[in-house]
């Protein structure tokens, strides 16, 4: 197993084992920082079955960590546990040094965790523009009290959200879709809207669940470029992906899961040559 003993720690170590601290520099981002997301011995159970069995991960700023594995390996459940959508049975998760293990999804989001979903999750009967401004970090609509009692402040926030939305639309060259409903977009555009929506929150960590599914081949390269550009902003990214070429091009490190456990980790080249990975996933 191609497990690294130093640097960003992803391991199936026992709870007493201290996690290594991330100190490296992202390969194309030139970003140096400590971990933004640390998960230790996370367990997710459905009935008596451990879908995720004591998986640990540490993600630094500007780092892209890929999670791969066969269907049913527990990748999406693990991502759900990080985001709070799936109830974890054990383990701890911290974001920017704060324990978020027991927090609800919206509380985690407000602390800087953003995510996309395995099936696209655009707000189908809202325009792309509405999708963005509803998701912004300063969305006043999250509070009825704010809207009713502080209309001036709400208007200011709306203006800030509007400016930010146009900025992001320009960055992703999606201005022409601004008045389209979410349901009117192509698969690739929906994926982009999901990612743009996350960026409206200026997150510290971005969790992407199979972002390339449904994306036309000619758009995949663009999405990879976009994700590389995002990482240069200093985000930590965890990406679950089946397209190995995408993982190879994008990820600094790769974690391979099978039967709920981490079976290998390291660089892409290291893990694909690992015998256990070959047996469980690639053969």
């Amino acid at each position: 197993m191609a497990e690294r003993e130093e640097g960003f720690g992803i391991s199936t170590a026992s709870p007493s084992t201290a996690l290594p601290v991330a100190t490296e520099v992202a390969s194309d981002g030139g970003y140096t920082a400590g971990p933004v997301l640390v998960a230790t011995d996370v367990v997710v159970s459905y009935g008596g079955v451990h879908a995720v069995d004591r998986v640990s991960i540490s993600v630094a700023r500007g780092e892209i960590v890929g999670v791969i594995g066969p269907n049913g390996a527990g990748k999406s459940s693990f991502l759900g546990a990080l985001g709070g959508q799936v109830k974890r049975s054990g383990g701890d998760i911290s974001l920017l040094g704060k324990d978020i293990s027991s927090m609800l999804p919206h509380q985690r989001a407000r602390l800087g965790l953003a995510r996309t979903f395995q099936t696209t999750s655009e707000f189908a009967k809202m325009t792309v523009f509405e999708n963005l401004i509803t998701s912004g970090e300063g969305n006043a609509g999250a509070s009825l009290k704010e809207v009713v009692l502080h209309p001036r402040k709400t208007a200011q926030r709306e203006r800030a959200m509007t400016d930010r939305a146009w900025e992001i639309l320009q960055r992703f060259e999606m201005e022409h879709t601004v008045n389209l409903y979410g349901r009117e977009l192509s698969g690739g555009q929906r994926r982009l809207v999901e990612i743009m929506r996350c960026l409206m929150r200026d997150p510290a960590v971005l969790l992407l669940d199979e972002p390339m599914v449904g994306v036309a081949p000619h758009l995949t390269g663009k999405l990879i470029e976009d994700l590389r550009a995002i990482r240069r902003d200093g985000l930590g990214i965890v990406i679950v992906e089946h397209a190995l070429e995408v993982v190879r091009q994008l990820c600094d490190r790769v974690v391979v899961m099978a039967f709920g456990k981490v079976i290998a980790q390291g660089s892409f080249e290291e893990v694909v040559q690992d015998a256990s990975v070959q047996a469980a996933y690639l053969s």
Binding site: G83, Q85, L104, P105, H106, A109, R110, A114, R115, F117, S121, E122, F123, A124, K125, M126, E130, N131, I133, T134, S135, E137, N139, A140, G141, A142, S143, L144, V147, T154, R157, E158, G182, E194, R197, R201
Partner: peptide
């Protein structure tokens, strides 16, 4: 208002709305 827009987001996709801080 933005509050009404948040309601529509919740209507369209609860999990995504929640993941966006609502």
């Amino acid at each position: 208002s933005p509050w009404g827009r948040s309601l529509r987001a919740m209507r369209d996709h609860e999990d995504a709305a929640s993941a966006m801080g609502l």
